[in-house]
Write a protein that binds this DNA or RNA. Structure first.
Lengths: 350, 350
DNA sequence: CGAGGCATTGATCTATCTCAATTCTAGTGG
DNA sequence: CCACTAGAATTGAGATAGATCAATGCCTCG
């Protein structure tokens, strides 16, 4: 039997809702204010939480924020109850990691379907991603307790699905934490004053997104967008910092990731400063060809994107690729690229 | 009583010199060749080393180079003994980090005054830097035990002095740890195949050098060179990692430093990709003007260096600076730069 | 005070961007 | 399943910012 916790200051609504749920076979816990709600959640670890936004003393936001900080409760599906209107509030709630919201007054069917839907989704996601997570754990094995907890945090947290071209966050947004890419790929980009874009990074499965914004108390300096349909998992700032405090290994992993990043960027700066378009494009193709060391020799990417990564004009990219093709270095058909002569690309003179 | 090691293949000179020194109250160690000299130095850690340049099998340069690599011996004052002439050799020796040289034949007074002067200098430097270190400790206070230990580590380590244009480490060297800059400034640079240099970073007092090489088990990917006479302190890899394991705060500091670095690099990439030389040079001037937030409006730098940071030709830098001057944005006299109109530089259109 | 290294300035050259006109591709709806 | 269309890619022609080569002038440091 599933336990559901209702946090709601109005006795009427609370009892009424509880009744509906109990008739449907759920076991219900009730809390009349935020503080009580948090305590109950931590003690009982319910399977789902319903929480009013507007409450005296402690708002629903504070409750969600507090629960998110505790890894034990961070992953419990969380549904906001809210008076109609207040769209801004809803946005804010969802951004903070709430899973859904119900507009009061709601009827039995709305309530039950929202809850069921959420419980099902959580369940199926858990199964779906447990495979990915096993890989992750294997990957981060031997790192001791720290990573087990990190993995728990990941497994526990809700997954956010974003579709191709959708924005995960904008330059200027306040970072909420870091994202682990579970599936698909994303890119981060900066925009110059004249509107030209520069892609600064491409993230694939198992990459972390936003580490460099985690500890600097500033807004994002780049925009993150899905290159293809993707699933990411938000690890809230406070939880990650908490882990960082407890497990130095995790900090060391982050340092490694960032160090690699710095190195890559410096390499790119050197290329951009002194290498010809041919050379830069050649090395970019190599870089894209082996996203994670597995050389696959073929991938898909638009000219505009190639241009935005390498900082050249799309027409120039197009021309140069045509040259490469006639020279037998690559094969291209529309946006599909196939590397033919890896070595000659690596050793491109100029 | 101070120990002095003499490395010299000619027995006559060696014994003679030893006698002079012993009469003056020093305890003398002797070595007849480079290999023996290095071993003795490592075993006995003398207070000062005298070393002939021209020796069979292993030259004085090799001895100095070997001792410099070992942190235990790197900070021992090192004086070359050399036959007259050979000015080039002397230059080379000083560039490698020797502290002084004596031209053979030398008399008692020359020898003793050189030694005394050097020992005194080392002593006073130790005191001088202990003050800097105290500042550092104050600076990193409030970070708990971790930083106290870090500060201890720093205080314990010997200081390495490097002169202008001298190399701290080369691309391809194995990192021994990270360096804390105590005084002066250094730059790290990468070299393109055609010999052009790109300066990737400039480090000032209290900056850490080499964090990005610390945890990646690979060689340095850039060369570090002193821009002006500088003093650095080597924090050995193992000690730092040990601290990292014990004090998450330190890891977090490193993450912040690296995060900032990544951000800066991305910003530079954007500029290099899409901004005009005018704009890039303007923002570089701004960046150089305030090394650590203290706007001083005037600094010294060569055209070649400006070119190597911004990835343009030195002539272009020169031309653009002249333009800036006629526009009343800056004032320049040889390599001295003075910012006149900070705002207009920041808002440079194109 | 002299020399060698910096800095400046001029003249030329070219890699790459920009604008513009076609052609191709892939995704949509009938 | 096919035709249609909007977006993507290609190709051409022309413009230009900045690199390069070269000559001269100016510090600065011994």
């Amino acid at each position: 039997m599933k336990n559901i916790l209702i946090i709601e200051d109005s006795i009427d609504i609370r009892e009424n809702t509880a009744e509906i749920l109990e008739m449907s076979g759920y076991h219900v816990l009730q809390a009349g204010d935020g503080k009580d709600g948090i305590e109950t959640a931590e003690r009982e670890k319910p399977h789902l939480i319903l929480c009013d936004i507007m409450m005296p003393e402690m708002s629903g936001f504070s409750v969600l924020s507090a629960l998110s900080k505790n890894p034990e409760t961070a992953s419990i599906p969380f549904i906001f109850l809210t008076a109609r209107a207040e769209r801004a509030d809803i946005r804010k709630g969802m951004d903070m990691g709430a899973d859904d919201y119900l507009t009061k007054p709601f009827n039995d069917i709305e309530l039950l379907s929202a809850i069921e839907c959420r419980l099902n989704k959580t369940e199926s996601q858990k199964q779906y991603y447990s495979k990915t997570l096993q890989n992750l754990q294997k990957l981060t094995a031997g790192l001791g307790d720290g990573n087990k907890e990190l993995a728990n945090l990941i497994g526990a947290r809700k997954v956010k699905l974003i579709k191709k071209k959708q924005i995960l966050y904008y330059e200027g947004d306040q970072p909420q934490g870091i994202y682990l890419v579970l599936k698909g790929s994303l890119k981060t980009l900066k925009i110059a004053k004249d509107g030209k874009e520069l892609i600064t990074n491409i993230y694939h499965e198992e990459d972390y997104l936003g580490i460099n914004a985690l500890l600097l108390d500033e807004v994002f300096t780049e925009t993150a967008e899905a290159v293809e349909d993707a699933a990411v998992c938000l690890l809230l700032k406070d939880s990650v910092i908490e882990l960082l405090n407890r497990y130095p290994e995790i900090g060391k992993q982050f340092i490694k990731i960032l160090s690699n990043n710095v190195r890559e960027k410096e390499e790119q700066l050197l290329e951009l400063a002194y290498h010809s378009v041919r050379k830069r494009l050649a090395s970019l193709l190599i870089r894209l060809d082996s996203p994670q060391s597995g050389t696959c020799n073929n991938f898909k990417i638009s000219r505009d994107e190639l241009a935005a990564i390498s900082g050249m004009a799309a027409e120039t990219v197009s021309r140069t690729l045509s040259d490469f093709q006639t020279e037998g270095l690559i094969e291209k058909r529309a946006s599909h690229m196939l590397i033919l002569d890896h070595d000659r690309l690596v050793n491109m003179k100029n």
